[in-house]
Simulated assay, not measured.
Amino acid sequence: MLLRLVRRLGAATAVATLFALATPLTAEAAVPATIPLRITNNSGRTDPVYVYDLGTQLSTGRQGWADATGTFHAWPAGGNPPTPAPDASIPGPAAGQSTTIRMPKFSGRIYFSYGQKLVFKVTTGGLVQPAVQNPSDPNRDILFNWSEYTLNDSGLWLNSTQVDMVSAPYAVGVQRSDGSTVTTGHLKSGGYTGFFNALRGQAGGWANLVQTRSDGTVLRALSPGHGLETGALPSTVMDDYVNRVWQKYATTTLTVTPFADTPAKYYGRVSGNVMNFTNSAGAVVTSFQKPDADSIFGCHKYLDAPNDQVRGPISRTLCAGFNRSTLLVNANQPDTTSAAFYQDTVTNQYARRLHAQMADGKAYAFAFDDVGNQESLVNDGSPQQAYLTLDPLS
């Protein structure tokens, strides 16, 4: 069973990035304490780049940051209100150049920013990460982005993420022990501008997700979950689709087979405001309240997905089906035929527009975009080197 990144990130939270990890059944080749991360600046921008490696040290569970050599530094105690964090920035590469740093065994994030250093603070509960859906966040007018990774004794999992926002584009990669390299996260030529143009042209409030600076610079598009939070998207944006799903499965059975390598199936039927799932013996194993848009876009609340073997896998399948709008066209889920994704008029338009602009079609547009292997993730059990490539904003 491959280790999966279960990504339920809230950028507004004052906790370190957390990953729920499934223990592999077989041991991989020994992974050193640190591996090199080669950062290449192909952005074409001339302003300075600042890099940060922040996360949780896996051997101790402590939160902190790593310097360019991969040496761990714990955050200070912090306070309430939050106090300034130590400057954890690493000088990034100039335009057309590359810089190599060392990644330690972390579950965390690689942040990078253009032109200005990011503002981090520490509370008694841990690190306060940027939350640019808040107009008063000190990082609101800074162009930045981040990648997420876990490096442990079983290998490296490194992704490009758009769960919280689409901003300064980048790709990730890993060199394997046989010398081959795999990459993901690149946009098509013109894809960055194409995404924002498409989102701005999408009716129903989706254009309101785009944030710009006072000088007109496009900074990012917030995820639809954050759009609900700020009022950019109406809370009813998914209601029509949910109502049609609920109507269909009041008289039809939804069959969920959450694991491709096991035969377990679960059968969903709607009764009133609840969809009950039974196992092959007819026993109810879990139930879901009729979800709202926030539950769908965040894959939480009414679609909470605990790290178990029943409710969590069913929930993540439902989450993917709602976001991709495949539940009405296929009563057997998950639907992994990407040609059927996002075809309903009511769908996650942010995810639809993003995937359409990716060079390989892969992205992490919502928390369980890995259902059906649609995520922008690289993984290797014996990584020789990792890569982060800053791409043009065009």
Score class of each variant (00 low, 15 high):
A27V: 03
P263E: 07
Q175Y: 06
S113R: 01
G185M: 03
K105A: 00
Y267D: 12
L158R: 06
A293L: 03
E148L: 04
A221P: 02
A386E: 02
A331Q: 04
K188N: 06
P306T: 12
N139C: 03
Q289K: 13
T251M: 07
L143Y: 00
F277Q: 11
H355Y: 10
P93F: 04
A29Q: 09
G372S: 11
L199N: 10
T71D: 13
R311Y: 02
T26Y: 10
I110M: 05
N273C: 14
A367E: 07
R269W: 04
A264T: 10
H186L: 01
R353M: 11
G96V: 01
L21V: 13
A359Y: 01
A198Y: 14
Y114I: 14
T150V: 08
G185S: 02
Q357D: 07
A77G: 15
A198P: 12
R213V: 00
D360T: 15
L222Q: 05
R200M: 13
A283Q: 14
L18S: 08
G204V: 04
G312F: 02
T262C: 13
F72Q: 00
I142F: 12
G231F: 05
D153N: 01
D153V: 00
G361Y: 12
C319P: 01
S214R: 08
Q309N: 06
N332H: 12
L158T: 05
D141W: 08
R38S: 08
T253N: 13
Q349A: 06
P76D: 13
E148K: 05
A207L: 02
D153A: 02
D87C: 10
R102H: 09
P138Y: 05
A66C: 09
G372F: 05
N330E: 09
W157Q: 06
